[in-house]
Design a protein around this nucleic acid. Structure first.
Length: 118
DNA sequence: GGGGTGACGCGTC
DNA sequence: CGACGCGCCACCC
């Protein structure tokens, strides 16, 4: 992890984001806003996208498990060519018809909530 | 120090 | 529902 630690300031924010993404368990997904919130600031949703864009460790950081608020995967070729993200998600056992993940069922919850907080 | 951009989110129309 | 606009924060020039 010393290859990308040239700019500590960048890691201050990005590191938290990467750390959160790394914690996303297999078989679940998280939204940008969720990652941002867990990282410390909910308004980093946009920053999260940028952070994943410069993902220093695609193998350790499952950026494909991050989808937008609608549950839609990045239609962008950010993953190297189209529906690569979808394939990875399905490989995790997450069906994503039309590139849409059912957040109601597969959204990551840090802890099993006993009751839904509304 | 200023301006433009982005793998987003949310309220409104 | 979908489209539009504003806000938010970090990054690059």
């Amino acid at each position: 992890m010393g290859q990308f630690t040239e700019d500590k300031r960048t890691l201050s924010s990005f590191d938290r984001i990467y750390d959160v993404v790394r914690q996303i368990p297999r078989g679940t997904v998280a939204t940008y806003g969720q990652v941002a919130s867990l990282a410390g600031n909910r308004r980093w949703a946009r920053v999260v996208g940028f952070a994943l864009h410069v993902n220093p460790d695609p193998e350790g950081i499952p950026c494909y498990r991050v989808v937008n608020r609608s549950g839609q995967v990045s239609s962008a070729f950010a993953f190297g060519g189209g529906n690569r993200q979808i394939e990875l998600l399905e490989a995790d056992g997450i069906p994503c018809p039309d590139g849409i993940v059912d957040l109601a069922k597969y959204q990551w919850k840090r802890a099993t909530v006993d009751y839904l907080p509304e």
